[in-house]
Design a protein around this nucleic acid. Structure first.
Length: 787
DNA sequence: ATGAGCAGTGTGGGG
DNA sequence: CACTGCTCAT
């Protein structure tokens, strides 16, 4: 225990020690709340609590992973692996996989246990189908907007009946109809959307006392991180797990505990139903709760902290709290106005070059935060031109790419043939001459006979008067393909099975025929996906298809951000929650962008914007740069902006302004050349550099080559595969690099080959890159060159 | 059934 | 600007 308490301050110790009952920790930014949580878990285990009795809920998978790692260190792997650590969504997914069939609605299970999870795209397109099937105009009822309404209802635990009953106007009554149809469709697809994961667990607990009792007695100690971002179903779930169905039960606290950690100043997810009032009201719900405040900040310098404090005091709805630091004043905050988003981006790039030039800071010390994803484009371009490696969090996620979604759709269909969404996605990919009209017909038959679309295809012969023999033949072929895969799936490891899948479906062949840069990169991505599966097998993760698919649905891009990479990080302010960096740039501080236009004039929303500002500022340890521009390209034309009010809320004494210098005055200064000629700046350094580019990275048009995928290096002989029409039949006398060879990859930079492995009969290099870590690279594509 | 070309519309953030 | 969806020709 002494070991565990070492290095903690008084309040932190108190929070770690408390044995029984409810505990609320109000933890300011950088006050060591993660430390409190992990040490609390370690302390419990040390006191004899069994690891599997502890449930720790975090906000992101990344945070969960970090916590797990720290606990492996503190407790050893043997103990740590039994802990239940995860996000609400992943824990719900796991729990439902076991228990969902116990939740009965009208005498049948709410879902079968092989349910699939629909992501946002699937859900929106399902809503769209629902709108169409109700013969409504999807211009009047925009699928996205309707989905958002349904989602917010679900986050308030409002089911279809109650939604219909409380719908006052015609529009909402119509949405109620769509909601009902949408729910029916989810059910026929045996699918859940993200919101359902949470809501279903609550309903399960409410409707099934035995199941609740089972988990209530299992989890005697519950910890929740980032509690200010909890929504109603999440809170209900925690409340039910801790107190059970009877909140007045006084024996609850016997040897049990609930510890929630949060900071209402960092509540930034109200738009998805989170409500910091849940945290504020916790002492009402739990009168015996102990309250601990952590106010010492161990992260930021005085100036940064003071800026954060001065901004957040403008919010009216908050508990007064003032963070203090013992790090000294530190540097002033730098504020910079630029002419447009390109100059803003170049300022950031040049500043980073300057800060890292002396070796005092490394690229991984720097982060650029912005309000909207759209802002990333100009920044990315500037980093590419400036040859600074960067990694972008968010944006296009790995599993959101077409080819990955396609492969996952195959897997989902194989796992759960009721999933007509996935079937629609891949029934004609690659082309099988099954077009839109056929799909429509299948859908109609499916509705008529209450079958899944796959069910219709299975029984294609029975619908001879509706499907022509030609079509039926094609469908039978497709059915045979899927059926054979279903049959063979259990016989193989997952990674092997995926190889077989892309082989038999002809997916890779199809891409190979295409023989374009894009197709090759898709092939690479699929191979990487196979490697992900393989790696998960190696790590001993559960690669049973259902578990794997759940994990893939819930993984977020942030989770893949590895540490210690020599790259700058780009991300939204929302993604940055819980992270810290020595140097922080906040870009786009303009009225209408940040605070966002949709928050102007609405006080509640404005306060949330301000909390977002607070989150941004408090990510910084040593240096903080704020930038804003006069004009910005939106929808293709320029809009003009005023500086953000949040800048004015920082005391001028803390700020050092770097005024914008008009171009004509600049000749005498030693400013970078980009200010003179934007065009030149983009054109000057064309060749691909040894940098890591973001996942959205596309080669500039000028660099695209049709015949090879390798960018040649002047002084290095590189063999390139000359791609004929059928590249796979070209006789290749290829020499492979040996393990240990230092290599260069156009996307991942420099690395070293660990070994050569075969993935679906394709040689692949397992390479550890300095910047992106371990990757599998197709050896036949020869994208690697000796370094 | 498929693909090219055009018109219309949209971006707040994320599991 | 970028993406989707629709129309029309093949």
């Amino acid at each position: 225990m002494e070991e565990i308490l070492k290095g903690l301050n008084c309040s932190q110790k108190e929070a770690v020690i408390k044995e029984e009952g409810p505990l609320v920790v109000l933890a300011g930014a950088g006050s060591g709340k993660t430390k409190v949580l992990t040490h609390r878990v370690a302390g419990l285990v040390e006191r004899g609590v069994r690891p599997w009795e502890i449930l720790a809920v975090t906000f992101t998978n990344k945070a969960a992973k970090e916590m797990k790692q720290r606990l492996e260190f503190l407790l050893g792997e043997a103990q740590a692996k039994h802990l239940w650590i995860g996000t609400f969504h992943s824990i719900c997914g796991k729990l439902l996989r076991f228990e969902i069939e116990n939740y009965m609605v009208n005498n049948e299970p709410f879902r079968q246990k092989n349910f699939v999870i629909f992501d946002e795209n699937d859900s929106v397109s399902l809503v769209k189908q629902a709108i169409k099937s109700e013969n409504l105009d999807d211009k009047l009822y925009k699928p996205q907007a309707v989905k958002a309404t349904i989602s917010s209802a679900k986050n308030k635990m409002i089911d279809t009946d109650r939604f219909a009953a409380t719908a006052r106007d015609y529009r909402n009554q119509t949405i109620a109809r769509i909601y009902q149809v949408y729910e029916n469709m989810l059910k026929t697809n045996n699918a859940l959307d993200f919101d359902d994961l949470l809501m279903s667990v609550v309903r399960l607990f409410e409707n099934c006392p035995e199941v609740l009792e089972k988990y209530k007695s299992k989890f005697s100690h519950i910890l929740v991180d980032e509690f200010q971002d909890t929504n109603l179903p999440q809170y209900r779930m925690i409340d039910l797990l801790y107190r059970g169905a009877n909140p007045d039960d006084k024996t609850v606290s016997n040897g049990r505990s609930l510890c929630v950690v949060g900071d209402i100043d960092q509540s930034i997810y109200s738009w998805r139903g989170a409500d910091y009032k849940i945290l504020l009201n916790l002492q009402k719900d739990f009168p015996d709760a102990q309250l601990i405040k952590l106010e010492q900040n161990y992260r930021s310098t005085g100036n940064i902290l003071e800026a954060a404090n001065s901004v957040i005091i403008n919010n009216r709805e908050r508990i007064s709290k003032k963070l203090f630091s013992n790090k000294g004043q530190g540097s002033k905050i730098t504020c910079r106005e630029t002419i447009d988003e390109n100059e803003e981006a170049h300022f950031v790039v040049e500043k980073i070059k300057e800060l890292t030039a002396t070796g005092q800071y490394s690229l991984s010390d720097c982060v650029i935060l912005y309000r909207t994803n759209a802002q990333s484009r100009a920044l990315e371009e500037a980093f590419m031109s400036g040859k600074i490696p960067y990694i972008m969090v968010g944006g296009m996620k790995f599993y959101e790419r077409k080819e990955i979604k396609d492969v996952i759709a195959y897997l989902k269909l194989i796992y759960n043939t009721s999933d007509s969404q996935s079937l629609r996605r891949i029934i004609n990919v690659p082309k099988r001459a099954i077009g839109a009209s056929t799909i429509k017909k299948i859908d109609e038959i499916a509705r008529k006979y209450s079958l899944s679309m796959f069910g219709v295809i299975e029984k294609a012969d029975d619908f001879a008067d509706e499907l022509s023999p030609k079509v039926a033949k094609k469908l039978k072929e497709f059915h045979y393909l899927i059926a054979s895969l279903i049959k063979d799936c259990p016989e193989y490891d997952l990674s092997e099975f995926i190889s077989i899948l892309i082989e038999r479906t002809g997916y890779i062949d199809d891409l190979k025929q295409e023989n374009t840069e894009e197709a090759n990169s898709r092939i690479e991505n699929i191979r990487e996906f196979i490697s992900v599966a393989r790696e998960q097998e190696d790590l001993g993760l559960d690669t049973e298809l259902g578990e794997f698919l759940t994990r893939m649905s819930l993984i977020s891009d942030l989770d893949n951000v590895a540490d210690n990479r020599e790259t700058v990080t780009l991300m939204t302010l929302h993604s940055a929650k819980g992270l810290e960096f020595p140097i922080v740039f906040m870009a786009g501080l303009e009225e209408g962008l940040f605070p966002h236009a949709r928050a102007l004039g609405r006080n509640q929303d404005m306060e949330e914007e301000r909390r977002l500002m607070y989150v941004g500022i408090t990510r910084a340890e040593e240096r903080l740069f704020l930038t804003f521009t006069k004009r910005r390209l939106i929808y293709g034309d320029y809009k003009y902006f005023m500086p953000s009010r949040f800048i004015d809320e920082i005391p001028p004494a803390l700020v050092e302004n770097m005024e914008y210098t008009p171009p004509e005055k600049k000749n005498t200064e030693k400013e970078p050349s980009y200010k003179h000629s934007k065009k030149n700046f983009y054109q000057q350094d064309a060749p691909v550099s040894n940098t890591t580019f973001g996942k959205n990275f596309k080669l500039p048009e000028s660099l695209k080559k049709s015949s090879t995928t390798i960018v040649k290096n002047k002084d290095q002989e590189v063999k390139t595969v000359t791609c004929a029409e059928k590249p796979r039949n070209v006789l290749k006398l290829q020499e492979f690099f040996d393990p240990g060879t230092r290599v260069f990859h156009y996307k991942f930079g420099i690395g070293e080959i660990d070994r050569i492995v075969n993935v679906e009969d394709n040689p692949m290099y397992a390479v550890t890159f300095t910047q992106v870590g371990k990757r599998f690279i197709d050896a036949t594509l020869e994208t690697l060159k000796k370094f």
